[in-house]
């Protein structure tokens, strides 16, 4: 069968019936539409912490232009943001705040851990830093580098887009009970209690 201009590839229609259609605007799933919209309009929260924040802003500026993916809308209010780019080192003092901002964001929400400090503590293996932001919030994509250049961040964002387009539309973290599974350890030798935050 010939390829129809609107309906797309129709060669399998004799075997599979209507399911044989390629997805087109008539038979496409609304799920795909939603995913498409999410990838094309993923508003980041302004969550700059350290050096990486500068590179994050540079990514939004003229040379690299995140606006191409509709991402220049950095939302100051976490309620309206979809993506939290943890750009920089997360200190012990900042950790609760970061978690609170994450909790204030509305589902669906994603997290990019930008730079090695956010991903693993980086070169600062010491008392002050959280050794990996994934102890606090669930991370979708890690961007390596110290700091990652704008190209690296864009790559991470594109990876995330791919993940969104291929992933589930809801219940993204069922296996984690929707939270990060944080261990809260008592420092004075009491028994450790596991507290799951964000359930």
């Amino acid at each position: 069968m010939p390829k129809l201009p609107i309906l797309g590839e129709t060669s399998n229609i004799s075997e599979d019936g209507l399911a044989g259609f390629d997805h087109n605007f008539l038979t496409g799933k609304i799920e795909d539409l939603v995913k498409w919209s999410r990838t094309r309009s993923m508003w980041p929260a302004t969550f700059g912490l350290a050096c990486c924040a500068l590179e994050m802003m540079a990514t939004g500026a003229a040379h690299y232009d995140l606006a191409r993916w509709g991402m220049e809308v950095f939302r100051a209010s976490p309620r309206q943001a979809d993506l939290m780019i943890v750009a920089g080192r997360v200190s012990q003092k900042m950790a609760p705040v970061l978690r609170q901002v994450y909790d204030q964001m509305m589902e669906p929400k994603w997290v990019i851990s930008m730079g090695v400090c956010a991903s693993s503590g980086g070169m600062f293996n010491n008392y002050a830093l959280v050794q990996g932001v994934d102890q606090i919030v669930p991370v979708d994509v890690y961007a390596p580098g110290c700091p990652p250049g704008p190209e690296t961040l864009m790559h991470a964002i594109l990876q995330l887009h791919e993940k969104v387009e291929n992933g589930e539309i809801t219940r993204r973290r069922k296996e984690m009970d929707g939270g990060a599974g944080i261990m809260v350890e008592q420092r004075d030798g009491q028994t450790a209690t596991k507290v799951i935050i964000g359930k």
């Binding site: 539409l33 939603v34 498409w36 919209s37 999410r38 094309r40 309009s41 993923m42 191409r68 509709g70 809308v73 309620r79 979809d82 509305m106 589902e107 669906p108």
Partner: peptide, 18 residues
């Protein structure tokens, strides 16, 4: 990018309300 606003709209429509 002419459908940009449409994407924004659909995304916001399917976002959690609070």
């Amino acid at each position: 990018g002419i459908l940009q606003t449409l994407a924004d709209g659909i995304k916001l429509f399917f976002k959690e309300d609070l």
